[in-house]
Design a protein around this nucleic acid. Structure first.
Lengths: 338, 338
DNA sequence: ATTGGCACTCATCCGGGCGGAGTGCCAGGC
DNA sequence: GCCTGGCACTCCGCCCGGATGAGTGCCAAT
């Protein structure tokens, strides 16, 4: 009974606070929402909610503001998923359908997310597993320096530079190339890596170039790390971010430049391909106590990479969640098709 | 005589203002610099400088602040090039020498610039001309969808997806591959593009796959545009940026996300491989009236791409200029070697 | 051409007084 | 037992006025 109303009050406070950015008081609350009770009643409820840790007062005799815990309850139990309008759906599909390659998909996704949520968007490159080796190309830059290019069936391209201990001839180069391709082409990544390593032991006298090139290749193959690149967009939306520059925005800008931190943020906030929300101090980076992350796994098949937005704890969770989910799903579908 | 002193006064004001961020008055000026005249004299000089448009007063009876014109005079005639300390030199070389490929060079350069200048750094990917085609690889994603990968001798890799009107067989695929490579490998970009285009007309009946793939390849080759990618770093340094968020920082953040605007900024501020400075409203983007750009062309051979920093008009020009120049030179050298 | 002196102008910094929004609590009503 | 109206209280934010001080502009003297 009262319990229901109290939750309604919490929801109303969150909504109003998100909209106005100002502490919300009892009177304004009853007016703006159709609560058929008096302000006094609301005050009692608010006192109870504060007691329970869902609300806080900036100072005595100011309105209430949701705490992290309050937001948590809000997103967990009070959020009804706002279905996206068909216009929005179409915006997403048309914008994303124009993409021509993986890079393009990723970059378009960031822009899209940033624009739709008016927040900072973050997209991690997807890891395309179950790919096989399509071709290995070896290019001599100088006589002791090779560029090794690995082309996978999915279109991923890895390139590495290898330094040789001794010069290699044109002939040696093309022998190296055929040998590498013979061993690896057509295999899955794991098998190819094994086959290549075998080259080192099988042969009587593996030449220097092989010795140098193989480990690099294997590393490049297993280097899904290099796929953990991250693209950030919509930083200008930080302008809407309230709060002081130094305490809120600067650490965020710093984090956005640190791929490692970003990955941690995204990773933490992602389980499977469902949308996850990390609110304020729940996360690993304490300087980011006043920011929330809404992220989702995505990718062909299962949740293999993450994408999402970063914003102030005071954000419009329902629509943000809906948008992130919609984009994640559509991007996944595109990746599945291509 | 007085003219000399007036220039000295301008220089002193610029230096003090850059250091303190506060309007500088006559008394403080004579104290902090060894000017052997009285404050009153300085006041006269300042009045003259203001009359001439080099200084401005925030409000009556406040100290003076340099105008854009004042900064211009300062960098053009009053700046003695501060040689870099050997420690700085070494920092640059060691940091940049660790780079393994082009991507790495570019990214390291941004970080380096951002750290050394404590400003926002911007580096455009260099256009590596005189590269030749090393290999063309064609990968079937589906039966009507090909991934074309172009490997250049410099290590640049371009990839494009091609949609075919009709399905292609494995056999057709490998014939396409050999034909493309036969025509293009070893040629310079320009020659290869021509040779490929010839394929379309020479043959009796060029097959559908060739028809579809060739234009894409040619486009990818001439697509130095895709080399006009830009990497930005050090955004967190915006925190030190004075001024209001909305009038100064927000437009800058927006500009930093707009590759086009950035390119215009960099391009404008670059002629040849010498360091150029664009101050405040001199530039093309009016919202960026309170920011300056210090940029330099760089690249193997001549100034083929730009790199530089963006910061408040009130910046330490001498050291910034020295740093940008040093980095540009060293990056150029690295690119020349590899 | 330079200097010291002097009057003047503003920004900035308190301290106090006021208004208003909002709360907490209590006593009465359904 | 829960809701409500009333009332006293707390503080934040705003405005005002005076004091402070840095800095200027001008003028007469050297």
């Amino acid at each position: 009974m009262q319990e229901d109303r109290r939750l309604a009050v919490l929801r109303a406070i969150v909504e109003d606070y998100v909209a106005t950015e100002e502490p919300v008081g009892s009177k304004a609350l009853v007016e703006r929402h159709g609560l058929n009770v008096s302000p006094a009643t609301i005050r009692n409820d608010m006192a109870a909610l504060e007691e329970a840790g869902y609300l806080a007062q900036p100072h005595t005799s100011a309105g209430r503001v949701p705490t992290d815990k309050g937001y948590r309850l809000f997103v967990d139990r009070l959020t009804t998923v706002r279905p996206m309008s068909t216009a929005e759906r179409r915006a997403i599909t048309t914008f994303l359908d124009g993409a021509v390659d993986l890079d393009d998909v990723v970059h378009r996704s960031v822009r899209l997310l940033a624009q739709l949520t008016r927040q900072v968007a973050v997209v991690q490159y997807p890891v395309l597993s179950r790919s096989t080796v399509r071709h290995i190309e070896v290019v001599a830059m100088t006589s002791t320096r090779l560029l090794v290019v690995l082309i996978l069936s999915t279109g991923r391209v890895e390139q590495r530079v290898v330094e040789l201990a001794e010069a290699i001839s044109d002939d040696g180069l093309s022998r190296l190339r055929t040998r590498l391709n013979l061993a690896a082409v057509g295999e899955t990544i794991a098998d190819a890596a094994a086959a290549l390593t075998d080259l080192l032991t099988d042969e009587e006298r593996p030449d220097a170039a092989t010795v140098a090139a193989v480990p690099t290749l294997v590393e490049a193959m297993s280097d899904h790390r290099s796929d953990e690149r991250i693209v950030v967009g919509g930083t200008a939306n930080l302008a809407r971010f309230g709060g002081s520059f130094d305490s809120a925005i600067r650490p965020l800008l710093e984090a956005l430049e640190e791929q490692v931190v970003l990955l941690k943020l995204l990773g933490e906030a992602t389980t499977g391909d469902t949308v996850t929300v990390r609110i304020g101090a729940e996360g690993p980076v304490e300087e980011l106590a006043s920011t929330s992350v809404v992220a989702s796994g995505y990718g062909p098949g299962d949740g293999l990479a993450s994408l999402g937005v970063v914003g102030p704890t005071r954000m419009d969770y329902p629509t943000t969640i809906a948008t992130v989910r919609a984009v994640a799903r559509y991007v996944s579908r595109i990746l599945d098709e291509s």
